[in-house]
């Protein structure tokens, strides 16, 4: 029988910092380019994602997180801004494989195949909130840790061999 549509693997070594306030000031403080609307800008091991008109998410290797929180808090001192380490509140999965777009499309009301590089789509997968963006060979999906088991289950279920969306 055919291969699974994609390999679903949990990612556990990422840190995430939620940043609210003026996005230009936040990007400045993070030392990164400000992402476009619904964009995600990557610079080396760090990515800065546009989450809403007043919210960004800094994604970075987990060990760098405490230091980054400290630096950002210092840099944004005196401004109306929020810096919160949300790493432990998140569950992350990589969906890698030739059928990765099918896996996403089955679960989210998103045309995954047409999703451009550098775009972050906040949406739902089945019944839980997620954000999705392209990585090498597929997609990265983040959700809430409280629904992480469910998210892993539905992703693996959607990737079952022989369940591709193309007409057979």
């Amino acid at each position: 029988m055919a291969e699974h549509l994609a390999r679903i693997s949990p990612v556990t070594d990422l840190g995430m910092i939620a940043l609210r306030g003026d996005l230009a000031a936040i990007a400045d403080a993070a030392g990164m380019a400000a992402p476009d609307r619904t964009g995600i800008a990557t610079d080396g091991p760090r990515s800065l994602a546009w989450m809403s008109p007043d919210e960004a998410l800094l994604i970075l290797p987990a060990p760098q997180t405490p230091e980054a929180v400290e630096a950002l808090t210092l840099a944004l001192d005196g401004q109306h801004a929020l810096v919160a380490d949300v790493s432990d509140a998140r569950a992350v999965f990589d969906v890698i494989g030739p059928g990765a777009a099918d896996v996403i499309a089955k679960l989210a009301p998103v045309d995954a195949a047409a999703m451009p590089q550098g775009h972050l789509r906040r949406t739902r997968m089945a019944q839980v909130a997620t954000a999705i963006w392209r990585i090498e060979g597929g997609f990265r999906v983040i959700g809430f840790r409280s629904t992480g088991d469910y998210l892993g289950l539905i992703l693996r279920n959607a990737a079952i061999a022989g369940s591709g969306l193309a007409p057979r």
Partner: peptide, 12 residues
């Protein structure tokens, strides 16, 4: 109008 996403009913 804030993020330009074409969202369907279930996301709203």
């Amino acid at each position: 109008p804030h993020c330009g996403i074409q969202a369907e009913e279930t996301e709203l």
